[in-house]
Amino acid sequence: MPSAARTGGAVAEPERFATEPAADDGERTIIGFFCRECAYAAADATGNARVPLPTTVRSVLVPCTGRVGPLHVMSALAEGADGVFLAGCLEGQCHYREGNLSALDRIAFVQRLLESVGVERERVQMFTMSAADSPRFVAATKRMHATISALPRLERR
C-alpha cells in the first residue's frame, strides 16, 4: 500500500465503536462527503435495503474524495456541523488513482489544524469502503454518529 509511505493520516476503522452515551444537549449535525464511485453507491444500497441509520448524518455527493479540500471541511464546521467525515474508496482502489490518498493527507492536515486551536481531532475523519460494502458504510456512519454524539456540541465564537 502506498499510503503508509506518503500519507500522514490514518483511515478510521468503522468497526471500532465509541460507546459513551450522547450528552443531552440536542442532536448533532454531521456532514459526510461521499465519493460517487464507492461510498455513495454503498449509501444507496443501504437505503435500498432499508437499513436504519442515525438522522444526524447528511451526505454531500462528490466525484472523488480527492475533490474535497480543507476549505470544504472547515466551512462545514464553521457553518454548524459538529463533525465531518469523508468516505472514499479502499486504499489502492481509487478510481482516479490516488484521490483517496490525497484526501487522507488533507484530513490529517485538518486534524492537526483543529488540534492547534483546541478542537478535538476526531471531529474530522476518513473512512474507506467498496461500493459493494454497505455494512461497512453503515458501521462508518454509526461510528461517526457515536463519536460526535459523545463530544459536546462544537462551540463557535
Binding site: 480527492g66 479540500g69 466551512s75 484521490g99 490525497s102
Partner: peptide, 24 residues
C-alpha cells in the same frame, strides 16, 4: 474527479458541477 481542483494552489482550476461555490 476534481483532484486537480483540490490540489490547485492558485485557485485557477475548477470543476464543472462541483465548483467550490456549488459544494459550499
Amino acid at each position: 474527479c476534481g483532484i486537480c481542483v483540490a490540489e490547485c494552489p492558485s485557485g485557477a482550476m475548477t470543476l464543472g458541477g462541483f465548483s467550490d461555490a456549488e459544494i459550499l
